[in-house]
Structure formats: structure tokens, C-alpha cells
Design a protein around this nucleic acid. Structure first.
Lengths: 168, 168
DNA sequence: CCTGCGCTTCATTTTTTCTTGAAATGATTG
DNA sequence: CAATCATTTCAAGAAAAAATGAAGCGCAGG
């Protein structure tokens, strides 16, 4: 069993092209609250023409075992990365799902919508509390709460439309 | 030596209504990368029927001088808060601008659009680098970069529309 | 002018978030 | 099944972000 495994194009360095992709995804994913290591992993996989095993990801990006494992787990959870079978290799190999809309979609569904829902409850509670205010204060505050509700409505109307646009 | 803990000088309680508003804004503003103290300040001002001076904001929220000053500065910068003159009082007084769309607008204009612009440059650079790849790799990578560009286009087309919707 | 107030700034501390690496788990294979 | 390899998990450490509070600036009012 002395079969030499296909020597992978230098398993240490990153090409300039890869660096561009990685930095780009670090920036975008940071925007939706994902740590740098996750952006790195996705960026590398995005430009990689072949599936990469975790240990190669670690080596190329110079990140720890834990970061690689957790990052891949998270990305799999988002549906942004999937594991593919690699015949004759015990290791999982990972490929990026190229459907970038997933990030936006997940963000909207898991971050934005729940917050809007929670905010609605708060607005309701605030309205219940209005009678505890003096008459003058009440009037002013009532108007503000009304505006808040109006805004939540607007947001909630808008989001399904955005989702549709994204997926299309 | 058992010592009585310093009695917290609750020199300004928050009403339940205020707490609801504050927590709500902490949550939303965190989403666009603003620190907790900024959410607190805006939340308090949003439900306050009168303009508040900085020292009162500090006391009510129990935050430091620095946090209050910096938070107000930031919010003023976003156009989410403005200082109003208060006759016979040396202190500035602050009111919330109720136009909530400002947060989304600023976020899109100052975070999203610049990143998209920067990403375009990277895509361009990546295309310049394509010839450094072997033929097989090049073909696969080319397709991915194309998809990236397609996505940036989609995003950039969508955002002005969202802005219009928000402002309306 | 001087004084004291309101505010800003920023070095330091605190808190939060991310990363690391070693130990535990699971899974394949000889 | 033993042995090894791949992966997950998690406690501890490192890094990043936010909050603190004291120093200092500018200015209104005496």
C-alpha cells in the first residue's frame, strides 16, 4: 500500500485568487455576525474546484482543528456547505453550495423575522402599560408606539417580497 | 469581614414601558452592529415624551459618562437623535428622530453598498488571475466567479428598490 | 479673567466573542 | 476487536469590542 496520494497543489500557501475570495467572504459573513474563521472556510471552498477534506482546510487556512470543525458544522447547518463522499478516503470532503442567497435567506428567517415577532409582543405589552402614564405623557407615547407598530408592519410586509426576489 | 454591599443608588428607575422599548432597540441595533449602550440610549429617547439631557440619560440607564457621550455622538451621526435647545439650561437636550428607516438606510448605504463595491473590485481582480490556473481548474473557477458577479448585480439592483420602499 | 459646568477624548479595565488544542467519541479497517 | 484515523466537544487562553472614568478642553456666567 505504498500508493502515493495525488500530491495536492501546495498544501500550505494560498493563491492570490483564493485570498481575494476569502477576504471577500470574511467581509460579507461578518456582516451577518459570523466569525472570521467561518468566512475563511466558505471563501476557500467557494473558489475551490474540488471538494476539500477538513485537514486540508486547516492547513491551508492555518486554523485550528476546533475552528475548522465548528465552522464546517455551522456552514453545514446553514446549508452553505455540504459533505460529499470521496471514494477510497475515510475523510469527509466538503464543497460550497454556490447558492449565495442562502446566507441572506437564513439571516432573514433566523435573525430578522424572530426579532420582529418579539418586537410585536413588546409593542403589545407597551400598549397595555400606557394607562400607567399621565394623560399628557400618554398621548405623546401612544403616537410613538403607533409609529413603531407601523414600522414593524412595513418590515414584515417587505421581507417575504425580498425573500422571493432572492430565491428567484 | 462581612461588609454590606454599597446600596445601589437607583437614582432613576426605568418604567416597565421604558424597559420594553430599550430591550427592543438593543436587539434591533445589535443586528446592525451597534453596541448595547447605543440601543439603550435610543430606546430611552424613543419613548421619552420630552428631550433628555445627557446626565439624565446616564443616571436612568446607569451607564458611564463616556458611553453616553459616545453613544449620543454616534446616534447624532446617524441622524437618529438630535440635540434641541433648552432655554435656561446649559445642557444639550436630546430627542429621538422617530424616522426608524434611518437605521436601515444608513446600514445599507454605509455598510452594504461599500462592501458590494469592494467585492466587485475583488471579482475583477479574480478574473485577471484566472489565467494563472490550469485549464481544468480555470473552467470551474470561472463559472463560480461568474455566479459571484451575478449575485453582486442582483444585490445592487435590489438595494435601491428597498431604499425607496423604506423611505416612502 | 476666573470658575465651574458640560462635554469629549482616550488610556485602561471589563466583558464578550472567537480560537485553540487536548481529551472524548465514533467510525473504519486490517 | 484492537488500532488508528477522523471528527466533535469543551475548558482554557487569546483577541476583539465595549464600557469606564479621569484628564482636559471650551465656554457661559459671574
Amino acid at each position: 500500500m505504498v500508493e502515493i496520494l495525488p500530491k495536492v497543489t501546495d498544501s500550505g500557501e494560498l493563491s492570490e485568487l483564493e485570498v481575494e475570495a476569502i477576504e471577500m467572504f470574511i467581509n460579507f459573513l461578518k456582516l451577518i455576525g459570523l466569525p472570521k474563521s467561518v468566512g475563511e472556510i466558505y471563501g476557500l471552498l467557494f473558489v475551490s474546484p474540488r471538494a476539500l477534506p477538513m485537514d486540508e482546510i486547516m492547513r491551508r487556512l492555518d486554523i485550528s482543528l476546533g475552528a475548522a470543525s465548528q465552522g464546517l458544522k455551522l456552514l453545514r447547518g446553514l446549508g452553505a456547505v455540504k459533505a460529499v463522499y470521496s471514494r477510497g478516503d475515510r475523510r469527509d470532503h466538503f464543497v460550497a453550495d454556490l447558492e449565495l442567497s442562502k446566507f441572506a435567506t437564513v439571516f432573514i428567517k433566523e435573525e430578522l423575522l424572530p426579532r420582529i415577532e418579539r418586537a410585536r409582543e413588546r409593542v403589545k405589552r407597551m400598549e397595555e402599560l400606557l394607562p400607567t402614564l399621565g394623560a399628557a405623557e400618554r398621548k405623546a407615547t401612544e403616537a410613538r408606539i403607533e409609529r413603531l407598530r407601523h414600522w414593524l408592519d412595513k418590515g414584515q410586509k417587505m421581507l417575504p417580497w425580498i425573500l422571493k426576489f432572492l430565491v428567484r
